[in-house]
Design a protein around this nucleic acid. Structure first.
Lengths: 80, 80
DNA sequence: ATATAACGGGTTGTTTACAACCTTTTTATT
DNA sequence: AATAAAAAGGTTGTAAACAACCCGTTATAT
């Protein structure tokens, strides 16, 4: 199969969100593995979210919010 | 091509979010067309979100929040 | 210096969002 | 009752998320 490259850039909002995700995780002294396990996702894929290399659907947002023990609204509180 | 049916159910969270979306739109006395236009999406597809027939990515959440003139966090404030 | 854990980058099958349509049904208006 | 408008349901090409991996690199601790 052909190389499968992105056609459109990841929106800036998602990059910002990824940074926030990592910052929040570090602030709470949690490992990628810990959050990934609680969210039921692969740790390597969670890193992609943090790095803004992959977008996510809102159901994933919810799973990650649950892993942090907060609401989706709180998880997005960085957005002004 | 074969019939293309969903393999997994839309998560309950997305259904709830859809209901919230519609409620918010009605409360603000806005039409589907109006929000869809501001968000740059098809009105018929926006209805699908409201009905919980389709999930969305967080970049779409952002576009819809912008259309309402609120933050993504505020848009998800129904989530407790 | 070396082992080990965390990170960044990449790949691929499968499922699904996105976008742009069309058709039918329901609701509201005249 | 007829008509128009809004809603609901459906289809399809294409791009991308999801999931589960591998591999090389950079920190960190022994």
């Amino acid at each position: 199969m052909s190389k499968r490259e992105r056609k459109k850039e990841i929106p800036a909002f998602c990059i910002e969100f990824g940074k926030h995700l990592r910052a929040l995780r570090i602030k709470n002294d949690l490992s990628v593995e810990e959050i990934a396990f609680k969210a039921g996702i692969d740790a390597q894929n969670l890193r992609k979210y943090e790095l803004g290399k992959q977008e996510m659907k809102i159901s994933m947002l919810k799973r990650i919010a649950d892993a942090f023990g907060i609401t989706t609204s709180e998880l997005l509180s960085f957005d002004k």
